[in-house]
Design a protein around this nucleic acid. Structure first.
Length: 907
RNA sequence: GGGCGAUUGGCUCAGUCGGUUAGAGCGCACGGUUCACAUCCGUGAGGUCACUGGUUCGAAUCCAGUAUCGCCCACCA
């Protein structure tokens, strides 16, 4: 075994540490489940984490960093436990998002989609994708993501394309994918249809206009005496009206039902129909019906078999059906129509109106409901199966309240419009023949002939549209493993273990993977859904490029290191909850990394020369250890248990909090300080060796369990610590520790040390409050409350002297305490002590003792009241009652001792 | 309109099955040239756990309601 140099540089330079550690991981080939360096325990099942493939639209932001940090933490722990782990990385082609971004990029070069044409545009997109993918991969690597790069996938690669064709064919054959003329969401800016999810409703202050329509007589002429007034927020759609609807029971209009009226400007005669959807109380109680441009009207139109008249063009202008307004934009048409109605005297009133208008998620354009023939997927049957998976517990949400969200959406799910009139994406594998037959094929080159009439392929025309990008994303858990082929990977790694992503894509992605996985694979795609929250800035504002508050992960990594960024993100996260990422938080994490670095540097530097260079990592025998060793081992064992439980239950923030406290407040602040005395050169070699063995053993354990969150610094330091005989060269594949390893600690001794630490704190407190200079040595007379503490005091005398700046004399009887001149009283649960001080010190200290007495009295009173209540003693569990009794006894004792001290004349 | 979440010291947040004296980090005050770390060490102040009512021997925790903030879903033109 080659031994690394024991020193680790006096200054922590994260960038250098990270680079060297990354190289070591790569060389060892440890990321793949069967990599050369993997140390898999054959009996353990694979652990598969499913990540949301980032969009190839640009560099990663700090939300991606959180995703990576959490997923990496899960994977690293599983890998150390010995599971074969699979974290399959990749990117998503993000068709509409990518096109919006690329359109901006080429606009800066003076080009447009039209000027380039489909072929050159797509070439340009592949180029863009390649460069962005490299950036994303590099960023993930800088973060320390231990993904299996050899299996990297892209949602547009041939494997994925094959899966998309196969999936669509299956759904078509199953009768779930169908082509129909429907009212869809149209974005005039992107010039494509959108799914319901891609339409963002935004509240807007608009206007509701009352417009008078004139009734016509049987011969078609206007009846000057009769009219009906409708309310509308969209006067530009008047030219597309094919009816006016009223409520069947509305007395105002009942007599008019069945009559006809004239739509202005286009001179169309349309009926007045009765339909219960009309709310008599809203507006005028009469509604214009425009089936081609309103979802509700479309349904009404179907019920009454009304014509559907599309009055717009794909780019948001009025078409020829709009008569005199043809060629105008939607906005101009509205202005003109309002002016013309006004001129005719048919514009009755305009009222301000708060309403919700759908906008395109990507471009921000107002979405237009339009009539189109497109592909839809009937997702209801799939949704039933996905819901069953959750009900049966086959898929479990880490935060149960998301199950409600999930069910709420699933129960009332609508058919999914998957056609997109974009270029960047998977072409829909549907071919049409001149006779209108539809052929859906999963063959790479399309069908040989029409399925309806045997026309040859040459006579068929493929659908020009592509799929909604989420259609391919929804296949991710199995398309990446080679489906529809029966690959070994598919058999081994499906279903996945944990699907981890942000709660913002629960419908877009999570729900669809669950539906498609259930339907196409016949079982749930993953067992656990872990949803994290959004990362916001220090002011709790959403990060956005326009706001200019996005945090660049690479910038932070350059600044504080990847480990500190990861720690800050993980420490600040709670499942499903948003977090604020502030410079303070990052700084705290950076300090923690620095602390670990320095304490490790100290430990490594203290290695006794007598210890052979190749000495293995081991604990001294029980009898060779002092009380401090028993204490830190007991604490270490407890921490390992708690940290592991936190990881296992996805409480990652809790794991980091526990480790922060254990390493800083226990290991560094107490144990290392206690150990310093024992490491002094004048100590016997057995003491120095035993102390150092415990120091390094505990550090080893903490580094192991901290590794999932802070992989680089832990890897770097661990390489320089002694190893177990079965340890590998690299921490990333070292064994997850068993808390039982620390169980040789003697619990009673450890408890004695806990009492001693409380005594030291109390002495420091008394000194500080009395204003005694920290450098002044005091004599302390201590009466230990137990034999254990007496032994601990004796054994750790030197350490106490160092930590409390006192010379300790252990007394047998409390009477001796009264003989201490100008005594400062130090009363703890485990001991009582007096510090010999000056008269001035003592006077200053009196206030503290009184304060402590007051507090003790308050608590004692509460404890007595509780115990005096027979209901408590009868009904509370015995252990709780016993605890309360013990506590009351301690408080009584404490009160007596403090009173005794205060009542005694000093001198 | 429906649903979900939040409300805990000056700030940011933990607090899992209800159980002794509700924790942490930052900030603040005081004191420290202790040879791992001043990115540090020590000590301290600071909380009626949003409000009201209920269940319970016991509530930050469970239940009901209220308020404020936030998010998601939803075809009243």
């Amino acid at each position: 075994m080659t031994q690394s140099p024991p020193d680790i540089g006096s200054t922590y330079r994260p960038t250098e540490v990270e680079a060297s550690v990354r190289d070591a991981w790569d060389a060892a080939d440890v990321f793949a489940p069967d990599g050369a360096g993997a140390r898999v325990i054959a009996s353990l099942p694979p652990f598969v984490v499913i990540q949301p493939p980032p969009n190839v639209t640009g560099a990663l932001h700090v939300g991606h960093a959180l995703t990576a940090a959490l997923e990496d933490a899960m994977v690293r722990r599983a890998r150390m436990i010995g599971h074969p782990t699979l974290w399959l990385p990749g990117v998503d082609h993000a068709s509409i998002a990518a096109q919006v971004v690329l359109d901006r990029v080429i606009a800066a070069e003076g080009e447009t989609r039209a000027s380039l044409g489909r072929e050159r545009y797509l070439e340009r997109m592949w180029q863009f994708m390649e460069s962005t993918r490299n950036v994303i991969t590099e960023q993930h690597r800088r973060l320390g993501a231990s993904a299996d790069w050899s299996r990297q996938r892209f949602t547009m690669d041939p494997v994925s394309a094959k899966a998309v064709r196969a999936a669509f064919k299956r759904l078509y054959d199953d009768g779930l994918a169908y082509r129909d003329e429907q009212l869809i969401n149209w974005c005039p800016g992107c010039q494509t249809s959108l799914s319901d999810l891609e339409v963002a409703p935004r509240p807007q202050s608009g206007t509701i206009w009352s417009v008078r329509y004139h009734l016509v007589r049987a011969d078609g002429s206007i009846d000057p005496d009769r009219s009906i007034t409708v309310a509308t927020t969209r006067p530009e759609t008047i030219v597309g009206d094919t009816a006016v609807a009223v409520h069947p029971d509305d007395p105002r209009y009942q007599s008019m039902v069945g009559e006809r009226l004239l739509i202005p400007f286009v001179d169309r005669i349309v009926p007045i129909v009765a339909d219960p959807v009309v709310e008599p109380g809203f507006g005028t109680g009469a509604v214009k019906i425009t089936p081609a441009h309103d979802h509700s009207d479309f349904a009404t139109g179907r019920r009454h078999v009304l014509p559907v008249i599309d009055v717009m063009t794909d780019d948001g202008h009025m078409n020829d059906a709009a008569g005199p307004y043809a060629g105008l934009t939607r906005a101009d048409a509205r202005t003109r129509i309002l002016a013309d109605l006004e001129a005719r005297g048919d514009l009755i009133v305009a009222t301000p109106h708060e309403m919700v208008v759908g906008h395109c998620d990507r471009s921000g354009d107002v979405v237009e409901p339009r009539i189109k023939t497109q592909w839809f997927i009937n997702v209801k049957p799939m949704a039933e199966r996905a819901m069953a998976a959750v009900r049966d517990g086959r898929t479990r949400f880490v935060t149960p309240h998301f199950e409600k969200t999930f069910f709420g959406w699933m129960e009332d799910i609508h058919d999914w419009n998957v056609s997109r009139q974009l270029w960047w994406g998977h072409r829909i594998p549907a071919w049409y023949c001149p006779d209108g037959h539809v052929t859906v094929s999963d063959l790479p080159d399309g069908p040989a002939s029409c399925s309806g009439c045997d026309r040859p392929a040459a006579a068929l025309r493929q659908d020009a549209d592509i799929f909604d990008t989420w259609f391919s994303s929804g296949l991710w858990p199995f398309s990446t493993l080679g489906w529809p082929d029966a690959s070994p990977d598919l058999a081994r790694f499906y279903p996945g273990t944990v699907m981890e992503t942000g709660y913002d894509i629960i419908f877009f992605w999570v729900a669809r993977m669950m539906m498609l996985g259930e339907w196409l694979m016949g079982r749930e795609p993953f067992r656990i859904v872990y949803l994290h929250g959004m990362v916001r800035d220090a002011q709790n504002a959403k990060m956005s490029k326009t706001r200019g508050n996005v945090v660049d992960p690479l910038g932070v990594i350059d600044d504080v290191g990847a480990d500190a960024l990861r720690f800050a993100l993980v420490n600040g996260t709670a499942p499903g909850m948003d977090q604020r990422l502030s410079p303070d938080r990052l700084e705290g994490a950076q300090r923690f990394a620095n602390k670990i670095w320095n304490v490790s540097r100290y430990v490594l530097g203290q290695r006794p020369a007598e210890l052979p260079a190749d000495a293995i990592l081991t604990l001294p025998g029980k009898d060779a250890m002092g009380p401090a060793e028993h204490w830190i081992l007991a604490r270490c064992g407890e921490t390992l248990r708690e940290v592991d439980a936190a990881y296992a239950s996805f409480q990652f923030a809790e794991a980091t909090r526990l480790l922060h406290a254990a390493i800083w407040a226990e290991y560094c602040d107490w144990y290392v300080e206690l150990a310093k005395t024992q490491l002094a050169p004048e100590q016997p070699v057995e003491v120095r060796v035993a102390t150092w063995q415990v120091l390094s053993w505990v550090l080893d354990r903490y580094l192991r369990v901290l590794h999932p969150v802070m992989p680089h610094i832990t890897e770097h330091i661990w390489a320089r610590l002694p190893k177990n005989p079965d340890d590998p060269e690299l921490l990333i594949v070292a064994r997850w520790p068993d808390p039982a390893g620390a169980s040789i600690a003697d619990v009673a001794t450890a408890d004695g040390v806990t009492e001693l630490l409380a005594l030291i704190t109390a002495i420091r407190n008394a000194r500080s409050d009395a204003g005694i200079d920290a450098s002044t040595w005091l004599a302390a007379t201590v009466v230990p409350g137990s034999e254990t503490l007496r032994h601990v005091l004796q054994d750790l005398e030197g350490a106490i002297a160092r930590l409390a700046r006192v010379r300790v004399a252990i007394a047998d009887s409390p009477a001796i305490l009264d003989e201490v001149p100008n005594a400062l009283a130090v009363v703890t649960d485990g001991a009582e002590a007096r510090l010999a001080a000056t008269e001035g010190d003592r006077d200053r200290d009196r206030a503290r003792v009184e304060r402590e007495l007051d507090e003790a009295l308050r608590h004692l009173e509460a404890a007595r009241a509780r115990l005096a209540d027979p209901k408590f003693t009868e009904r509370a569990p015995a252990t709780v009652v016993e605890g309360a009794r013990k506590r009351a006894q301690e408080l009584e004792d404490r009160v007596a001792r403090l009173r005794d001290h205060l009542d005694r004349p000093h001198g």
